[in-house]
Design a protein around this nucleic acid. Structure first.
Lengths: 333, 333
DNA sequence: CTGAAAGCGCTTACAG
DNA sequence: CTGAAAGCGCTTACAG
């Protein structure tokens, strides 16, 4: 079924059908009703190749902000973005990227504003802060949808969140920890930041599973995603608690933790999250027992692809899209 | 860069550029050289939306044979096929499906032949048999590419294999088994068929990792992917070997194995492969400790998408595309 | 050996 | 309130 056929059946021109379908107004109510009925009955949807060709005159542009400076995890997310772009570039889409460092609210807002006039929609990893939510509102008011990737922000108008379930990711890590230790002994947790929603969710998930075992959390260390801090705090802890049997690294800081453990000579199990090159290497070597992978490249890919569909007028089925969590160990890394 | 621009720069018509790019011949050697140089220099690739629109007059059709009758695993593969189709239908592609049951060479060949005249390419899960390889050769000779999904066949002209690395999948299962048992005791293996390449690779991978532990394989049972057989053989074994500490189910037959273990009352760890609804439920309940997921839906999706690209003239970068192996346990199922 | 034209399905001004 | 036409980038006959 094509636009032309619809128009013929309704006895009008393609222009009129278009006016009806896009709710552009200025159509005789009788005519509109007739057209609408025929569209419904035939289940017509516009052919995407036809639409794409027209759009290629002035491609739609999606703004993408990545916290990738000095953070290889977000390079992975962006790899997925590029993959989706490669598939859809010819269909009239492009991407405008801004790279920022870390989680500074003002810097993130400034990136959002600098992109505003040039883009039709925004994909980014928000800091969970009311100011960011408000800025998303500015985009929404201008008809520019926002999709959050990897992390979400409370109470905003973002159309879709693409990322993992952090609570489950902590639970999964605990399950592996229990298996390795026989479910007995003391565990330390190295977390990223107490201010990050996802990190806290992981810790909560981890603890919830430990309740059913004889494992206890000896201490929880905040490293601010910094390897040096992770190293120092872990090293100090290991001196005071030689009886530890495992360390759970809930965010970044894996390399620092691994180093401290190696120097201590204590035979600990290290369980991590996420799959950056350094962690992959540690798992391969057996220095990290397992890592819980949230598939960042798939997140970037899905975020962008969904954004394209949203710009084409399709609403996502669900406001959250969770990527699977995969446990990776020595042989499936 | 568009065809039109290329034609203008070369001072010829679009038709002539097309003749050069498709190697259709009948072009003055001088002209051809000039066009080719300009195409190279500009890095021109045809716009896919434009190509799609023309192709929509007569869509290309991909034949898909699935061994899905009575086998939920292949329903998952087909879900992925449908997802890819949903994305690419408007770009001038369609699918013609044949469903068959099990692994009968003659039945598979007959499905291949019945599809031959109606399709431009074939996606299927081959039996590892020389007759099948020969039949792929018939397709290849007619310029109809074949992509194998989930399983591969030796010595054929298939263009691409999309599936997992079975050896690694067995290794990964062994790693989990070792972790759960403390690396000591006796393990039974329930395999599908000694005639299936993938099943044997899994068993080999499993054994290779066990060598570094104090785990021993007590017995290896062939169940022909049948739950009843799995149940009977496992039940019998458990009577003779009450000291078993784990069972590795290398293919189908999980439900039968689980039942036999439950009845025996012996507290065994069960480690499985693949993620069908039944297995998911067992993992959720804790009756199966872990399963190694090869992501069948992604396999179907990638197989079809790659086939579309192949039909458009792109050769895949590699002749094998491995989907990731994910360990799934109670909290990430 | 080569070019001009039609047409794939759509959207976008423009004319009335 | 409505339609005719141009054009997006490509391929496919067809004419010469």
């Amino acid at each position: 079924m094509t636009l032309k056929e619809i128009a013929e059946r309704a006895g009008v021109s393609r222009g009129t059908v278009d006016r009806v379908m896009k709710n552009r107004g200025g159509v005789n109510p009788e005519t509109e009703k007739r057209v609408r009925r025929i569209v419904e009955e035939s289940g017509y949807t516009p052919n995407r190749a036809g639409v794409a060709l027209v759009r290629s005159k002035r491609p739609m542009v999606v703004g993408v902000i990545t916290n990738s400076i000095g953070n290889p995890f977000f390079e992975e997310v962006y790899r997925g973005v590029e993959e989706a772009l490669g598939e859809y570039r010819d269909y009239g889409f492009s991407v405008l990227r801004r790279e920022i460092k870390g989680y500074d609210v003002e810097e993130q807002i400034s990136a959002m504003r600098s992109l505003f006039d040039q883009v039709d929609g925004l994909v980014f990893t928000p800091i969970d802060d009311a100011k960011i939510a408000r800025e998303i509102g500015v985009y929404a008011a201008a008809g520019k949808p926002a999709v959050t990737v990897t992390a979400d922000v409370e109470g905003s108008d973002r159309v879709l969140y693409v990322g993992c379930d952090y609570y489950k990711s902590g639970q999964t890590a605990a399950k592996i920890t229990a298996l390795a230790t026989g479910g007995q002994g003391e565990v330390a947790i190295v977390t990223g930041s107490f201010k990050m929603l996802g990190h806290n969710d992981r810790v909560r998930g981890f603890r919830s599973v430990l309740k059913d075992t004889d494992l206890r959390v000896a201490e929880i260390l905040e490293c601010n995603d910094d390897d040096k801090t992770a190293y120092e705090k872990t090293a100090r802890l290991l001196k005071n608690r030689p009886a530890l049997c495992a360390v759970y690294v809930a965010a970044a800081g894996v390399a620092g933790t691994v180093e401290a453990v190696a120097e201590s000579g204590v035979p600990l199990f290290i369980i991590a999250n996420d799959l950056i090159p350094a962690t992959r290497e540690y798992v391969r070597q057996g220095r990290v027992l397992a890592t819980i992978d949230q598939q960042p490249a798939r997140q970037g890919y899905a975020a962008l692809k969904n954004m394209f569909d949203i710009l084409l007028g399709e609403r996502p089925a669900n406001e959250r899209f969770y990527t699977d969590l995969a446990i990776r160990m020595q042989y499936n890394i």
